[in-house]
């Protein structure tokens, strides 16, 4: 590829990821409130704009203009830096996710993927894990007991669910034989969706994904009824908003990864396939919201029980069986 074409493509990709997905993150907050309201027989946001559509804008203005409070007893630099880590690592992780199939525009093949590395999926998962430094540092630097508890919960949750994500992805990867997300996608064109071969891995991956993005059944880090607001207690204004942008972008990454690994991704890459790809991704975003409406959250000890006594043994057994099948 020509160098100038490469630079322009990368710039376009970066702008799309930063622009579209941070906007989508905002829009998802609106979707979330509407879906929750629908499931709980309420109306949700209705007053600002038609069907409350401009609520996102109003929230944005509110977050940006709110007073930015930095507590005196906090460790200032780390306190200010912590909220940046989560969205930054989420956007960097997106560099490894193909968010659309290859497109032909004006005779130039445009690949909507910044790095097609041969360790693609590991890169995405690793960068997502780096994002967990954000609540941890926020909790430790706030100088507040609730925040500290939130930070401590981050440490346990990350250490336990990293294991589950890694082990659950391993079994499908053994079948595919490559770490590149493009290769995983191409494998499924010939062999059918991987969910039919790896149903257990799919459920484990989804559960671990919910825990890593800190979504409802596992939102121990900031559960209001127990630890006020966890790591985010001392944050206000846009610093608080950054945590949420990061969380929602991470949700999109998990949805994209689930579709790519288990649901055939974008297949052969025709226009219809591209649309189906996005439709599948949005179904998984919807599933995130649905779960939030339907499920109560777990206690920390139940979470540990679930991780180490149920999910991890299941994942290991799954790998052993897959290994035997691949070998014989």
């Amino acid at each position: 590829m020509e160098l100038d074409v490469f630079i322009i493509q990368t710039l376009i990709n970066v702008l799309i990821i930063l622009g579209v997905f941070s906007a989508l993150a905002g829009f998802t907050t609106y979707l979330e409130r509407k879906v929750l309201a629908f499931m709980q027989r309420r109306l949700g946001p209705m007053y600002v704009g038609p069907y409350g559509l401009l609520q996102v804008l109003a929230d944005g203005i509110k977050l940006f203009t709110k007073e930015d409070i930095v507590p005196t007893n906090s460790i200032q630099t780390v306190f200010k830096l912590a909220p940046v880590i989560l969205p930054a690592s989420a956007f960097i992780a997106f560099a490894g996710v193909p968010f659309l199939p290859d497109m032909e525009i004006f005779g130039v093949t445009f690949q909507p993927l910044i790095v097609d590395s041969n360790a693609g999926i590991l890169f995405v998962l690793g960068m997502m894990a780096v994002g967990m430094f954000s609540p941890l540092l926020a909790g430790l630097s706030s100088g507040n007991k609730w925040s500290l508890l939130g930070g401590a919960r981050t440490a346990i949750q990350l250490l336990s669910f990293e294991v589950i994500t890694g082990l659950s992805v391993l079994a499908p990867l053994m079948l595919v034989g490559s770490l590149s997300l493009i290769d995983i996608n191409n494998y499924q064109i010939e062999n059918g969706w991987l969910i039919w071969q790896q149903p257990i891995a799919f459920f484990l991956f989804l559960i671990a994904g919910y825990a890593e993005t800190n979504r409802t059944p596992f939102d121990l880090l900031e559960h209001e009824a127990e630890v006020v607001s966890g790591y985010a207690t001392e944050y206000s204004g846009m610093r608080w908003g950054l945590f949420f942008i990061g969380e929602y972008v991470n949700m999109y990454i998990v949805a994209f990864l689930t579709v790519l690994i288990f649901f055939g991704g974008f297949g052969e890459g025709t226009f219809v396939d591209g649309l189906l790809y996005l439709a599948k991704v949005f179904f998984f975003i919807f599933l995130f919201l649905w779960t939030r409406a339907a499920w109560p959250h777990l206690r920390p000890d139940q979470l540990m029980w679930l991780t180490w006594k149920v999910l991890m043994p299941l994942a290991v057994v799954n790998i052993v069986i897959t290994g035997l099948v691949v070998m014989f």
Binding site: A119, L122, F123, M127, A129, V130, F133, L158, E162
Partner: peptide, 16 residues
């Protein structure tokens, strides 16, 4: 690439 990614994953967990 692989070693780079392993560096990230291992040290994230270890430092946490």
């Amino acid at each position: 690439d692989f070693l780079g990614v392993v560096q990230i994953i291992v040290y994230t967990g270890a430092v946490i």
